[in-house]
Design a protein around this nucleic acid. Structure first.
Length: 645
RNA sequence: GCCGGCGUAGCUCAGUGGUAGAGCAACGGUUUCGUAAACCGUAGGUCGGUGGUUCAAUCCCACUCGCCGGCUCCA
C-alpha cells in the first residue's frame, strides 16, 4: 500500500501500482478546468504514471504554471504533427512551452508563408477534433535512434545522442511520434482554442554557425474566450508600441542620418526625461548618495585594467586615437567611479560611499536587435556604486531594495518579481566571499519580507545579484532594476580602505540601477501609460483653449499664473472650433484642458476638462491649481516593500 | 551579424514596366463657431541609396542603408 497526500492535506491509501489518474480522479478541480496531468512531489507527470511509493499529489490544470507548460507543450506537439501532415519533409527540431504559448522549430528548405500557416492551423483544428490519445513510449537510445533515422529526423537523432540517460521517452499521437521528456495531456481533444501566431528564423541550438530553422509560434487556451482575451492583449501591445506613440506625441526619434540605436529626444520627450532625472537626483541626495560625473571616453588602458577589453570587447566600439594614446568610448561607468575612489586614501569611517551618476554609455549592439528605446547603442544608466565594508552589506542592500520599490511605485508599477542569482561555475572570489555576499542579499530580502526566486548559477562571474522585474498593465514583465555585488573590480584596481587596525582592507563594491537604462525605462513607461502620462510627468500638464479671439488675453493671463505656480501650460489661441482644439489636446494626451469663453471671462472662472473623462466643472483658477497640486503630490506617496506571492 | 518581410509627400497609406495619387498636417483665405475633426484654395515627392537589365523602371535584378518580426526559455 502507498499513501497519497493531496493539496488540502487529506490522505488516501492505494495499492502500489495505481496510476496518478486513478489516485486523483475523485479530487474536485477548481474553475471547472480539465485535469491535464499531475504534480508528484513537485514534478509534473503524466496521468498514466504508475505510483509505487508514498507521494504528495496535486492535480494540474491550466490554472497553474506547470499546468500551462504541459498544455502548451502538448500544443507544440499538435503543431508539429500538423506541420508534418501538410509538409512531410519538414524535420522536427525542438518545441518547448514558453512564457506565453509555445513554439516549434522545423528544418525546412524555405520559409513558411502566411498561407502555409493558415493551412497548418486548419490541420491543427482537425487534429484536435480527431482527439488522438497521447501515449508515452519508453525505449533505449539504441532502440530510438533507428526509429528517427528511418523518419529522416536528423535533429532528433542528434538530440538523443546528446542525452546522458541511456533510456529515452517518446510520445505518440495518431501517426505522429516525437522524442519528448513529457509530460503531456492525455489527448489532443483537450485543447480548447488554438492559434498559430507567427514564423521567424531561428538557429539550431541558438548558434549562428548552425543551420537556420523555421520557428513557428503558437498559443492555446482551454476556451475561445481566453484566447480572444490574449489576442486582445497582443493587439493592445501593438497599438501602444512606444515607437508609434513616441512619434505621435513627438517624444523622440531615431534617424538614419545620425545612426540606428541612437536616440534623438524631442522637446516633449526631453521634458519627460528631465522630470524623471530631476526626481532621481533629488531622491538620491535625500537618501545619502552623492552625485558624480564622468567623461564619455577614457584611455584604453583603463579598460585593460578593468578587464572590459578582454571580456566585453565585442560590445564595445573600436578605440579612438588621440595623438599617441588610444581612447575608448565607455560601455560602463564603473571604472570611473573606481578611479574616483582611488583618488585618495579611504578610511573605514568613510564607508559606505554611495556615488550615483546618470551616465551615458555606448555599446555596439548587433543591428538586428535594436528596438526603439528599448534596445539601443547609446543609453543612460541610472548608475550607482556603493563601496562598503562586508558587515555593511546587508543593510546597504536592504536600503537599495527599499529605494528601488518606492521609486518604481512612483511610476505606477506595483507588481514585482525578484530573482536572486547565485555563484556560476566560473567565478572570481573565494567561496567564503560568495557565501557571505549571498547570505547578505538573502537577509536583506528577508528583512523586507520580500519573497523571491533563486536562479542557481545565474550570477555574474564577479558576484551574486538581485534582479527585479516589474509587470506592466499589459501583464508583461520587464527587468530594469538590478543589484550586483562585485569581487572582481576592487581586486583588479586594488581598492582598499584603512581599517581600525590600521591595515588595508578590500571594500565590497555594489553596482545598482533602478531604471537600468533611462531610454528603455521610458519606453516601458510610454507603453504602460499608453502615452497618457500622469500629471507629474506629462510634458504639458494644462492646455488653455479659447472659444474665440475675445478671450485671448484672459487665456494668456491664466498661462502666466499657471507657470508662476510651476505648471507646464500652453495656450491654444487659434481661430479654430473648440471641438478641434479639444480633439488635438486629447490626442496629445494632455491631462487637463481649461476652456474659456465669454462666460468664464465675465465670471473670472475656468471650465475644466479632464483627459478622457470630459468636463470636470467650472471653477475659479485657485481651486483648480489646488486640485492639480494635490494630484501631483499624491504621486509622491511611496510605500514600503511589497509582499510577493 | 543571420533568416524572413518591408521602405512611395512631414504623417498614415493607395498605385502602375511608359518619369505618381488620397486623407491628415503645412501654407493662404473665408468662418468667431461652447466640450473629440468648419469650408475653399495653394504648395509639397529625382517613389531609401548605388549600379544593372530594358527603347523605357518607382515597379524586374544585384548590392547597400534603414525599419519590422524572430534568433542561449536546449527531447
Amino acid at each position: 500500500m502507498i499513501e497519497v497526500t493531496y493539496p488540502d492535506k487529506s490522505r488516501r491509501s492505494y495499492e502500489s501500482g495505481v496510476t496518478a489518474f486513478e489516485a486523483i480522479a475523485g479530487y474536485t478541480l477548481p474553475n471547472n478546468r480539465t485535469l491535464l496531468a499531475a504534480e508528484a512531489d513537485g514534478i509534473a507527470v503524466d496521468l498514466s504514471t504508475v505510483l509505487t511509493s508514498n507521494v504528495s499529489l496535486k492535480p494540474l490544470t491550466f490554472d497553474s504554471k506547470l499546468g500551462k507548460e504541459v498544455y502548451w507543450h502538448t500544443s507544440a506537439h499538435i503543431l508539429a504533427q500538423a506541420v508534418q501532415t501538410v509538409f512531410p519533409l519538414a524535420k522536427l527540431a525542438i518545441g518547448p512551452p514558453i512564457d506565453a504559448g509555445f513554439y516549434y522549430d522545423f528544418g525546412f528548405d524555405r520559409a513558411f508563408t502566411p498561407e502555409d500557416l493558415n493551412r497548418i492551423e486548419e490541420e491543427v483544428h482537425s487534429i484536435v477534433k480527431a482527439d488522438y490519445p497521447l501515449e508515452r513510449i519508453e525505449s533505449s537510445q539504441e532502440g530510438a535512434i533507428p526509429l528517427f533515422q528511418e523518419r529522416d529526423e536528423s535533429y532528433k537523432v542528434e538530440i538523443i545522442k546528446a542525452i546522458a540517460d541511456p533510456s529515452v521517452s517518446m510520445y505518440r499521437q495518431g501517426n505522429f511520434i516525437d522524442l519528448c521528456r513529457g509530460p503531456h495531456m492525455t489527448s489532443t481533444g483537450q485543447i480548447g482554442a488554438f492559434k498559430v501566431l507567427s514564423v521567424a528564423g531561428a538557429y539550431w541550438r541558438g548558434d549562428k554557425q548552425n543551420p537556420m530553422l523555421q520557428r513557428i509560434y503558437g498559443i492555446s487556451f482551454p476556451t475561445q474566450e481566453e484566447l480572444d482575451q490574449h489576442l486582445l492583449l497582443l493587439e493592445e501591445a501593438k497599438r501602444r508600441d512606444h515607437r508609434k506613440i513616441g512619434k505621435e506625441l513627438d517624444l523622440f526619434s531615431v534617424s538614419e542620418e545620425t545612426g540606428s540605436g541612437l536616440i534623438l529626444w524631442h522637446p516633449k520627450g526631453a521634458m519627460v526625461r528631465h522630470l524623471i532625472e530631476t526626481f532621481w537626483r533629488e531622491q538620491h541626495i535625500e537618501r545619502g548618495y552623492e552625485l558624480v560625473y564622468s567623461p564619455h571616453i577614457a584611455r584604453l588602458d583603463l579598460w585593460k585594467q578593468s578587464g572590459h577589453l578582454d571580456f566585453y570587447h565585442e560590445s564595445m566600439f573600436s578605440p579612438i586615437s588621440a595623438e599617441d594614446n588610444p581612447y575608448q568610448l565607455k560601455p560602463m561607468n564603473c571604472p570611473f567611479h573606481i578611479v574616483i575612489y582611488k583618488s585618495r586614501l579611504r578610511s573605514y569611517r568613510d564607508l559606505p560611499l554611495r556615488w550615483a551618476e546618470l551616465g551615458t554609455v555606448y555599446r555596439r549592439e548587433l543591428s538586428g536587435v535594436l528596438e526603439g528605446l528599448k534596445r539601443v547603442r547609446g543609453f543612460t544608466q541610472d548608475d550607482a556604486h556603493i563601496f562598503c565594508r562586508p558587515e555593511q552589506l546587508a543593510e546597504e542592500v536592504a536600503d537599495i531594495l527599499k529605494f528601488t520599490f518606492s521609486t518604481l511605485r512612483r511610476f505606477g508599477f506595483e507588481d514585482f518579481e525578484i530573482f536572486l542569482s547565485t555563484r556560476p561555475d566560473h567565478a572570481v572570489g573565494s567561496a567564503e566571499d560568495w557565501q557571505h555576499a549571498t547570505d547578505a542579499l538573502k537577509s536583506a530580502l528577508h528583512a523586507l519580507k520580500v519573497s523571491y526566486t533563486i536562479d542557481p548559477g545565474e550570477g555574474a562571474f564577479y558576484g551574486p545579484k538581485i534582479d527585479i522585474q516589474i509587470r506592466d498593465v499589459l501583464e508583461r514583465s520587464w527587468q530594469c532594476s538590478t543589484i550586483q555585488l562585485d569581487f572582481n573590480l576592487p581586486q583588479r584596481f586594488e581598492l582598499a580602505f584603512t581599517g581600525p587596525d590600521g591595515k588595508p582592507h578590500q571594500p565590497i563594491m555594489i553596482h545598482r540601477a533602478i531604471f537600468g537604462s533611462l531610454e528603455r525605462f521610458i519606453g516601458v513607461l510610454i507603453e504602460h501609460f499608453d502615452g497618457a502620462f500622469p500629471a507629474w510627468l506629462a510634458p504639458v500638464q494644462v492646455k488653455v483653449l479659447t472659444l474665440g479671439e475675445t478671450q485671448s488675453s484672459y487665456a494668456s493671463n491664466i498661462i502666466v499664473e499657471l507657470k508662476q505656480h510651476g505648471f507646464r501650460a500652453e495656450a491654444d489661441l487659434r481661430s479654430e472650433k473648440i471641438n478641434l482644439k479639444i480633439r488635438e489636446a486629447e490626442t496629445a494626451k494632455v491631462p487637463y484642458m481649461i476652456i474659456v469663453g465669454d462666460k468664464e471671462v465675465a465670471a473670472s472662472t475656468v471650465s475644466v476638462r479632464k483627459r478622457k473623462e470630459g468636463q470636470a466643472g467650472t471653477m475659479k483658477l485657485v481651486p483648480f491649481i489646488k486640485m492639480l497640486t494635490a494630484e501631483i503630490l499624491e504621486y509622491s506617496s511611496a510605500s514600503p516593500a511589497p509582499t510577493q506571492s
